[in-house]
Design a protein around this nucleic acid. Structure first.
Lengths: 213, 213
DNA sequence: CGATACATTGAACAAATTCAAAGCTGGTGG
DNA sequence: CCACCAGCTTTGAATTTGTTCAATGTATCG
């Protein structure tokens, strides 16, 4: 359990606190590809992602995944559903092998939530989630496909070459075809340059920003 | 200031608390149509909507409004931006005349946030916002236009006749034309029936749900 | 009555997806 | 070492979904 202390949230727990926490929780390991919960499920535990990467997505009427976010350890996952006792609003799948702390929420609430420190950190965790959702909403409602790609280049350009375009397309909720067409358009207009390893050599930040600002 | 007590948040404030609050805040009146803040602005105060209805929206690249939510009193508005010190992620406009409590956030945080009661209620307010955003995101990313309309009929059918279709269209982020076409399609398939006053007389919930579940 | 806003309908248009086909590339096994 | 295969990328054409533009119809309210 000692790695919990890495989490900002539990950083100032003392040994006594950690012991109490361990009494109301247990860890579970998952393999890459396994699902932690599905959209619509009822929450049973308060989850803390301890190891591995967890993808959050929705499924549309065509059974296509809509990518929302990828969580890195260590963080609470979907705590909203516990606090509000509502079904999960999205599904989650391990992108790598991983480990999760499953906390009995009601006991956690009774035992820990009265502490101002904890409360404040729960607030921080929730505002973090709100920020993420706000960004996703912005991306999916106000940006065009070109805007999404332009923003991704400016903010995550280094990922070109290290991850495949199909992956980037799925992060941006675009088809690989659309991404390819937009990139070749950007290339033709000299907004970007790629080297032979698909790495981004250059981008015209000013021109690209016009697509999303 | 006594109406603050109507807000669940301040319900159990005593007179002393209220006095302290009044020292770090002031109220301001707004007319219908006025803007409280624009997307991108830096937050200056923690706002509490005391009276009136406040519309939250984003603006897309075509300068079209994307409707997100309409707040009713009494509630915090955009508290996230204070907690995280980030720009407003959306704009807001009064739909009616209204009144707002402007609280100096830093002092509120210092004076009040240490109380577990307050913290817990801030958490509730944040989870409420997360739920709203989750619904908006669902509506805008996974539902089709038909799905949006079907869901609106089932969940808000009584509003037909009392508000105009243009208004419904803007709530659903559809054009009036699209809404009209979908409604006439639903009428033709006998999924819904309207009377001569545009009131919803009947809907086939089962059929309609197929569009959004 | 007439003006103004709202609703409906059709046709053209736009953005992105889907489907299909053809290159490319990198890794594996013979 | 090379050939081949599976997965990725690119490109074109068709399709889909919803918007835009334009015209017409319908209410409502001074």
């Amino acid at each position: 359990m000692k790695n919990l202390k890495q989490m900002a949230f539990f950083a100032d727990f003392n040994d006594e606190d950690m012991k109490r926490l361990s009494l109301i929780s247990k860890t579970k390991n998952y393999y890459k590809g396994e699902t932690l919960f599905y959209e619509g499920d009822e929450p049973k535990y308060l989850y803390v992602l301890l190891e591995g990467f967890l993808k959050i997505y929705k499924t549309d009427y065509k059974s296509h995944q809509i990518f929302l976010h990828q969580f890195s350890p260590i963080t609470f996952v979907a705590e909203l559903t516990c606090f509000e006792n509502i079904p999960y609003p999205a599904s989650s799948e391990f992108v790598t092998d991983g480990k999760v702390l499953k906390i009995e929420y009601q006991k956690f609430k009774d035992d820990f939530m009265s502490s101002p420190d904890i409360s404040f950190k729960v607030i921080k965790s929730l505002t973090g989630k709100l920020k993420i959702m706000s960004q996703v909403l912005h991306q999916e409602t106000v940006l065009t496909s070109e805007g999404k790609v332009a923003k991704f280049i400016v903010e995550n350009g280094e990922l070109f070459g290290s991850i495949k375009q199909v992956k980037i397309a799925s992060i941006l909720n675009l088809t690989p075809e659309t991404l390819s067409r937009i990139l070749s358009k950007f290339r033709q207009n000299n907004f970007v340059e790629f080297n032979e390893e698909y790495h981004l050599d250059f981008y015209n930040q000013e021109k690209l920003k016009e697509f999303y600002e």
